[in-house]
Simulated scan of single mutants.
Amino acid sequence: MGITLPLEKMTTEDKIRAMETIWDDLCKKDENIVSPSWHKDILEEREKAIESGKEEFIDWSEAKRQIEDKIS
Results as ranks from 00 to 15, higher is better:
49 A>V: 01
19 M>H: 06
6 P>Y: 06
47 E>K: 14
65 R>D: 08
7 L>W: 08
29 K>H: 15
35 S>E: 11
67 I>H: 02
61 S>H: 01
64 K>I: 09
13 E>G: 13
18 A>K: 00
15 K>I: 06
19 M>S: 07
14 D>C: 00
31 E>T: 11
13 E>L: 15
35 S>P: 10
7 L>C: 04
16 I>C: 00
53 G>P: 01
42 I>H: 09
5 L>N: 02
10 M>V: 00
68 E>N: 10
49 A>W: 04
13 E>T: 15
47 E>C: 07
3 I>C: 04
25 D>I: 11
5 L>M: 03
30 D>F: 14
43 L>C: 15
58 I>G: 00
23 W>M: 15
57 F>L: 15
14 D>K: 05
44 E>W: 04
61 S>V: 07
20 E>K: 12
50 I>Y: 06
1 M>E: 13
6 P>Q: 11
47 E>L: 12
65 R>M: 06
39 H>W: 15
8 E>L: 11
60 W>K: 07
62 E>Q: 11
40 K>H: 11
36 P>L: 02
11 T>H: 01
14 D>R: 05
34 V>T: 14
2 G>K: 15
8 E>A: 12
34 V>S: 11
17 R>A: 08
11 T>I: 04
4 T>E: 14
49 A>G: 05
63 A>D: 04
37 S>L: 12
4 T>N: 14
22 I>S: 05
58 I>W: 01
7 L>F: 10
